[in-house]
């Protein structure tokens, strides 16, 4: 059911990134990798339905009734969301989708750009379960990794990579993956979220080195609940899957990477 939550915090945190914290009961039941489909406009209206659709945001963290989101102001919807103020109400539909399946293997969490969002919540769960894990985050510039400090609460093994070398090492996240995996005594499971080229490259590495890899996909969504088939992706076995309801997390082998350019 859509829930009217309350905005506790909504502020810029470097780059075009914002952190939104809401009070929500429904989201207390979330698991890492799930998302919330939220309306950027105030539920109090007036509503001109422009933008019309909800925005699917990965759940960044859940701490009791406090649920948070990390989002980048890339379009009109997220820019309007950035103007919402603490104390205002917000229409939340979630948690939705199927999240990451946590296994007993040690874990390597890989977040590219705003794809870091589901990784903090996953880090919290792994930390709570006392598991061994490493976090790898990449972005264009150091300014776009200003949120990386949030990961310090849950992990002491945090690696940062930037395209321009302004923070952490210089290069692409995918460059560091084989080396990081080699440092594990037991082969880790890889959990990744980020742009399609990054995920596609990781899928290639996973196939080559026999890694276990779950990816969280991004897609344009309308309903968010599996009815409209706008976010369909094609699978290796010739069938289709709904990113919103069958995903957004999939084992990398399931995806037909060549047919996804959206």
């Amino acid at each position: 059911m859509p829930e009217i939550g309350e905005i506790i915090e909504n502020k810029p945190i470097g780059g075009d990134y914002h952190r939104l914290v809401v009070r929500s009961k429904a989201l207390m039941d979330s698991s890492p990798g799930q998302f919330t489909h939220l309306l950027v406009q105030s539920p109090k209206g007036p509503n001109t339905w422009d933008p019309l659709l909800r925005r699917p945001l990965s759940i960044y963290d859940v701490d009791g009734e406090r649920a948070s989101f990390l989002y980048k102001t890339v379009g009109r919807g997220t820019k309007l969301l950035a103007n919402r103020l603490p104390g205002e109400t917000i229409d939340l539909l979630g948690p939705l989708g199927r999240g990451f399946k946590i296994t007993s293997a040690p874990a390597l969490l890989i977040g590219g750009g705003v794809g870091a969002a589901p990784m903090l919540f996953l880090a919290r769960k792994l930390h709570e379960q006392g598991r061994d894990f490493v976090v790898l985050l990449g972005a264009k510039t150091g300014e776009e990794l200003a949120f990386a400090g949030d990961f310090g609460k849950f992990s002491s093994h945090l690696y940062l990579v930037t395209d321009d070398g302004s923070l952490g090492s210089c290069g692409l996240v995918t460059d560091s993956v084989p080396e990081l995996v080699a440092q594990f005594k037991i082969p880790p499971k890889l959990y990744a979220c980020g742009p399609i080229p990054m995920l596609s490259c990781l899928a290639g590495l996973a196939a080559q080195h026999n890694f276990t890899l779950d990816v969280s996909l991004e897609a344009k969504m309308a309903c968010g609940v599996g009815a409209c088939l706008a976010c369909t992706c094609f699978l290796k076995d010739g069938s289709t899957a709904r990113v919103c309801a069958d995903g957004p997390v999939f084992p990398y082998e399931a995806i037909e990477w060549g047919r996804r350019d959206g």
């Binding site: 409209c228 088939l229 289709t240 047919r259």
Partner: peptide
Amino acid sequence: RMGNPPPRLVETASGILNSIGLE
């Protein structure tokens, strides 16, 4: 029917454009 390739959805002013393709 498999429907059309993605992207199948674009938001426009107070509306959406879709090309689901009868999946």
